[in-house]
Amino acid sequence: MQKKEKLLEIRNLKQYFNIGKPNEVKAIDGISFDIYKGETLGLVGESGCGKSTTGRTIIRLYDATEGDVFFKGESVHGKKSRSELKKFNRSIQMIFQDPYASLNPRMKVSDIIAEGIDIHNLARNGKERMEQVYSLLETVGLNREHANRYPHEFSGGQRQRIGIARALAVQPEFIIADEPISALDVSIQAQVVNLMKKLQHEKGLTYLFIAHDLSMVKYISDRIGVMYFGKLVELAPAEELYSNPLHPYTQSLLSAIPLPDPEFERTRRRKTYDPSSHQYADHEEVIMREVKPGHFVHCSEQELKKYQAQYKS
């Protein structure tokens, strides 16, 4: 691979809710990773592990409790003037999980898509605005006739396409897709994933793809991060993660995916993960360590040696 340019750096990001109250939640508890330009980083984990919160904190829907995100070297959570914030908002966009809830039912598709165009003054006049909307609709595989309809006239897959068109309208560089396909049928999921891949090739987009469907994540991602209770426990290239999972939680997660292969299913052994199995001593520092170039695991010094030994054998 050629020299990779860092688009996004996440440094020791923490997001706590209800701080100081008895029900304080450490939704994200100090995670750090980089996202390179043009790649797709998949983020997986069970519900409540903080993967959606990570996406939302990166785009500054939440203010980070601690730590920061750097987009092209600039701090996201630092103080920003209105115009700076506007510029930032234009370069990062989000696709949401539920295509039924994320489109305003009282707005026409053309207005939904053009909202960003209007805010950022990307069209000089009404005609140019509509031209942009039409070309966006065609990019995502809908027709220009759809522009004057309302969201309820569309199926789930079509709505998700509208959501993608809306995200693309302001020509972003980075798109956070928060479970974009989990509400869709299997046959439609493939259509949306293919569309996202095609757009990435054409426009050089970078994706953060959040999901819990592990087989689809592997298909679309270049690298995958696994989260567990607010922490990133393993980060590796997609192939590597599936062929050589090191952290016991990753192993248990992978062993739980049912595959469409009855023969395999009859012999599948599921592993369970027990967090107490680590038996960390008090003085041990448990951080992300690089076991092999590009393959990071959340572990102690001792475990690192064990994992590296596993590699050699």
Partner: peptide, 13 residues
Amino acid sequence: MPSLDARDEELYA
């Protein structure tokens, strides 16, 4: 359905 062992070019839709 994407298979876990092969990385195909395009998913059949």
